[in-house]
């Protein structure tokens, strides 16, 4: 079997040690880093993403695959010239001010990282200013907010309005989620989109940033 195909298959199996070894071998064989990434690691990860989307595999398998992907990716990073390294996108996430329930938000963070996004997790009880300032200063693509409580839903609206006033061009998109959030709620407050669970949130964020 071809080396890159072996990388893809080992990644799909979640075998991070094997992916690490094979990537090392590919580098030693002077295969171009972009080829190792595109035709090895990303091919495997795309299969995993599709299987996950079709509910053929579940959270743990995706996370194992993601761990394996990073075992390869971390070796490739230094080989890319600055700015050439493909970047899926940057997402600032947090549980909004007044709410300390962060399990769902954490799961979204884990899954976003697994899907190759750069995630800046602001934690819980995050004031509106923090979301907006971080997103602008870090040049993030998306702000993701979560809440479990109905009382803190309006806080999300504050973030969205603050973002509009600070950056009217709409460059930074917003996604919200949590028990009280529905499509209607998201639309009413002007969020770009919403996710009903971690897997769905990742799908929506992918749509927001487009293919890269």
């Amino acid at each position: 079997m071809e080396l890159l195909e072996q990388i893809s298959i080992s990644l799909q199996k979640g075998d991070h040690q094997k992916v690490y070894d094979l990537t090392k071998e590919a580098i030693n064989n002077n295969l171009p880093p972009k080829e190792i990434l595109d035709d090895g690691l990303l091919v495997g990860m795309n299969v995993i993403s599709e299987k996950f989307r079709m509910h053929e595999i579940f959270l743990p398998h995706v996370l194992l695959a993601a761990k394996a992907m990073y075992a390869g990716l971390d070796q490739l990073k230094p080989l890319f010239i600055e700015g050439e390294m493909p970047n899926r996108g940057k997402v600032v996430i947090g549980t909004v001010h007044g709410d300390l329930h962060d399990i769902g938000k954490n799961l979204v963070g884990i899954m976003l990282k697994g899907a190759g996004f750069e995630v800046i997790d602001l934690g819980k009880n995050v004031p509106a200013e923090n979301f907006v300032e971080t997103a602008i200063s870090e040049e993030a693509d998306v702000i993701g907010m979560s809440t479990l409580l109905t009382t803190t839903v309006p806080v999300m609206k504050n973030v969205i309005e603050l973002l509009k006033s600070k950056q009217p061009n709409g460059k930074v998109k917003t996604i919200i989620g949590g028990a009280p959030i529905t499509g209607e709620v998201a639309m009413e407050m002007g969020a770009t989109t919403y996710g009903y669970d971690a897997a769905n949130a990742v799908e929506r964020v992918k749509q927001l940033v487009g293919d890269r």
Partner: peptide
Amino acid sequence: GHLLISDHSMKYLNEEQYFPKP
């Protein structure tokens, strides 16, 4: 931060939890 892919979880997940069809 989680035990989703801990060796212990991966070893016992399918023994400890029955997943019915949809």
